[in-house]
Computed example of a mutant assay.
Amino acid sequence: MPRSAQETERIRERELRIVRTARQIAEQDGWSAVTVRRLADAIGVSQPILYRHFPGGRDEIVERVVIDGYTELAAAMRVPGDGADTLPALVAAYLAFAREHPAVYEAMASARTGIVFASSETPAILREGFGMLERAVGGESDRDRAVRAELLWSTLHGISQFAAHDRLDAALDDVREDAVAALFARHP
């Protein structure tokens, strides 16, 4: 039986609330605290209702957080300009996102999900974000561009992880961002 527009909106709103609450709990208490029971209690629904929205339970909710996180990261990395002109702003946007959303970034970087990377099955938003990295670093061939983008992504991830665990001097953030952009700048 077809759903009314009002019912469809109510379902969408509840799903957004579930995901938002999972993010809030993770930011406050870590991902291990995000359980179906705690989520159901926090939003005032029964566990079966939560499973009706996310049949895969917690894993499906975390996967949604990961996709939403990559969507938000891609939006943050959309900076004016094209190619190498965008590299410093893209580096700064990536690192700011990881710093401002530590639990979401943690899920994006390390949660076990069914999301496939570096494949034709990779969700479009992930391919779009990686494409931004590729365009920013350039390269002589598709393969060279992909490797350079992977190296930039790995570098940004490493910086994000060290910063999240207070292993880097925050006073050097701007200098570090400029240095990363210089390392990956296109060479004639």
Rank of each mutant, 00 (worst) to 15 (best):
A33S: 15
A33I: 14
V34E: 04
V36A: 15
L39Q: 13
A40Q: 08
S46E: 13
S46I: 05
Q47A: 15
P48Q: 08
I49L: 13
Y51F: 15
R52C: 01
R52K: 13
R52P: 00
H53A: 14
P55C: 10
G57Y: 09
G57M: 09
G57Q: 10
G57A: 11
R58M: 06
R58H: 03
R58F: 02
D59T: 14
V62Q: 10
E63C: 03
E63F: 00
E63D: 07
R64Y: 00
V65P: 01
V65G: 08
V65D: 05
V66R: 03
I67Y: 00
I67G: 00
G69K: 08
E72Q: 15
E72C: 04
A74E: 15
R78G: 01
R78N: 10
V79S: 04
G83T: 09
D85G: 02
D85V: 01
T86L: 02
T86S: 06
L87S: 04
A92S: 14
A92K: 12
A92H: 13
A93W: 12
Y94W: 14
A96Q: 12
A96P: 00
A98E: 09
A98T: 14
A103T: 11
V104S: 05
V104P: 00
E106V: 02
A109I: 03
S110N: 14
R112Q: 13
G114P: 01
I115R: 06
E121A: 11
E121L: 06
I125S: 00
L126T: 09
R127S: 12
E128R: 02
G129K: 02
G129R: 08
F130V: 10
F130K: 07
F130E: 09
G131P: 02
G131F: 06
M132L: 15
L133N: 04
E134V: 07
R135T: 11
V137D: 09
G138T: 07
G138C: 05
S141A: 08
D142M: 03
R143K: 06
D144S: 11
A146N: 08
R148D: 05
E150D: 14
L152R: 03
W153I: 00
T155Y: 02
H157V: 10
I159H: 04
S160C: 09
Q161N: 02
F162H: 11
H165Y: 08
D166I: 01
D166W: 03
R167C: 07
L168K: 04
L168I: 12
D169I: 04
D169G: 01
D169V: 07
A171T: 12
A171W: 00
L172T: 09
V175F: 05
